[in-house]
Computed example of a mutant assay.
Amino acid sequence: MRNFFRSAGADLNIKGVLTFPKGIGIKAGEAVIFAFITCKSHAHRDRVNAKVMADPRLGAMPQSMPFDPKRMMYGGFEAKVDL
């Protein structure tokens, strides 16, 4: 992995657009956390994901998460602009 980015929501209530809070339906007291990882290629991403899934520490994860994992979103994206 080249980079891992994560941040907590700020300036999320912008008039006139679909905001993160409205789009994902957050409730009072909840926060939006956004994170992404950049990889060298799809093949690199696949190798990294395979290693993550094989990590025995995943089996030790608590049964009760501090968030609702059913509301997590995943996706793959290709950069269209690189500054």
Rank of each mutant, 00 (worst) to 15 (best):
33 I>K: 00
12 L>V: 09
44 H>P: 01
51 K>C: 08
14 I>Y: 06
35 A>K: 05
66 P>N: 02
47 R>C: 01
15 K>M: 15
42 H>D: 04
52 V>A: 09
64 S>Y: 01
49 N>E: 10
51 K>A: 15
37 I>H: 05
30 E>W: 06
76 G>T: 11
37 I>R: 11
22 K>W: 05
22 K>P: 03
27 K>N: 04
41 S>F: 06
76 G>I: 04
18 L>N: 08
8 A>E: 00
8 A>M: 07
46 D>K: 13
83 L>C: 12
4 F>D: 01
17 V>D: 09
36 F>Y: 15
1 M>A: 12
10 A>P: 01
62 P>Y: 07
17 V>N: 07
27 K>I: 00
22 K>Y: 03
74 Y>C: 03
4 F>R: 05
37 I>A: 08
64 S>F: 01
63 Q>V: 14
44 H>E: 10
22 K>A: 15
5 F>K: 02
50 A>F: 03
30 E>M: 09
28 A>T: 09
57 R>D: 07
74 Y>K: 00
62 P>T: 14
5 F>G: 00
18 L>F: 05
50 A>L: 09
38 T>S: 06
29 G>M: 05
55 D>L: 00
71 R>I: 08
56 P>W: 09
10 A>W: 02
11 D>C: 12
22 K>Q: 14
14 I>G: 05
76 G>S: 11
1 M>K: 05
73 M>A: 00
11 D>Q: 13
13 N>V: 14
33 I>D: 00
20 F>Y: 11
82 D>I: 09
25 G>P: 01
67 F>N: 00
13 N>R: 15
43 A>P: 02
39 C>T: 15
26 I>T: 09
75 G>P: 01
2 R>M: 12
59 G>C: 06
68 D>K: 03
62 P>Q: 15
